[in-house]
């Protein structure tokens, strides 16, 4: 037991140390990519809390990502808020949106839940376009360099941006590791494995699932708000269906219900698209083939397959 705990912490702190060191080794191009991957991985980690651990397959997480992105962006652009306050508001917006959607959507389950969350997200996307005078619609909002200063650090600077993305990623990873190893994490998994059984152990399925969805929304909101601040752009495309599907792909590729899976999936998918689009314009075909191979040979994702083949301690 303690031996496993040591392995778990060694692995996760090792990954964080490697990411911290990578900043000094990698060329600038990959630095920018990795910063983006780390923020997207936070989004995927949030998705994984709902999908991988609690068994809630949402097709509307772009709504929570978008809530964080626009919550932050509109407060900066329209109300002149500082980066810190706007970031906090963006995170809260993600959680609040998940709470509102969850209260309604969690009355359904399975395919109905997928459809209801998808509908909510589409409604959110169309709302952004409808209020173009405030949201700037498809054109989006560019966040001024002057507004992208957090605690005295200029987030538009490449080095600072990497560290900011890393700090968010590290915090999200460690909180999630603690969460899934906590008693509440065990109850989330119990909901995924057998809801009726869990109910007869005294757990209220609705409350447990709602709590997991709100946590998931907070992660998505944090990722959205950070993405806007770090890369200086808030656009409606980030609230579109594509951004609901992306974290699902990341999580499936890396391994649903694993702590590091979302990061691994995000990194692989990002570079797969990057490499494929250098070779062919049909880069989505390459992504499709990769997913087919995955479903055929490792349906539990890369880390899920490793966990089945000996690494049982992998959280």
């Amino acid at each position: 037991m303690t031996g496993n705990a040591f392995k778990v912490w060694a692995l996760h702190l090792g990954v964080l140390a490697a990411l911290l060191a990578a900043q000094f080794v990698l060329p600038a191009y990959h630095n920018g990519n990795l910063a983006r991957i780390m923020v997207l991985a936070v989004y995927a980690m949030g998705f994984n809390i709902a999908f991988g651990y609690t068994g809630l397959l949402s097709l509307g997480h772009a709504l929570f990502f978008g809530a964080g992105l626009y919550g932050m962006g509109m407060l900066v652009a329209l109300a002149g808020w500082g980066a810190g306050a706007a970031l906090t508001a963006g995170i809260a917006a993600g959680g609040a949106m998940a709470l509102a959607v969850g209260l309604l959507a969690l009355r359904t389950a399975g395919v109905s839940f997928m459809i209801v969350t998808l509908m909510f997200a589409q409604a959110g996307y169309l709302t952004i376009l409808y209020y173009t005078p405030y949201t700037r619609g498809e054109e989006g909002i560019v966040i001024d360099r002057a507004a992208r200063v957090l605690l005295g650090f200029d987030l538009s600077d490449d080095g600072v941006r990497y560290f900011a993305a890393f700090a968010l990623f590290a915090a999200a990873l460690l909180v999630k590791l603690a969460l899934v190893r906590s008693p509440f994490g065990r109850v989330m998994v119990a909901m995924r494995e057998n809801e009726e059984r869990s109910r007869m152990l005294g757990y209220d399925p609705f409350r447990i699932k709602l709590a997991a969805l709100v946590l998931s929304g907070i992660y998505a909101g944090a990722a959205g708000a950070a993405y806007g601040l770090l890369f200086g752009y808030v656009g409606a495309s980030f609230a579109s269906i594509q951004y609901s599907i992306l974290p699902l792909l990341y999580v499936l590729l890396g391994g649903a219900g694993t702590v590091l899976g979302p990061f691994l999936g995000a990194a692989l998918m990002f570079y797969l698209i990057d490499l494929a689009s250098g070779i062919t314009t049909a880069h989505l075909l390459v992504v499709g083939v990769a997913l087919l191979v995955l479903v055929l040979f490792a349906p539990k994702g890369i880390l899920g397959a490793l966990r089945d083949r000996g690494l049982k301690w992998l959280p």
């Binding site: 008693p183 065990r186 109850v187 998994v189 119990a190 494995e193 057998n194 152990l201 005294g202 757990y203």
Partner: peptide, 16 residues
């Protein structure tokens, strides 16, 4: 819970 350990199964009852 067939896919969880025996200990996790019982812990879910105990922590409840």
């Amino acid at each position: 819970y067939a896919r969880l350990s025996v200990l996790d199964n019982i812990a879910l009852a105990v922590q409840s």
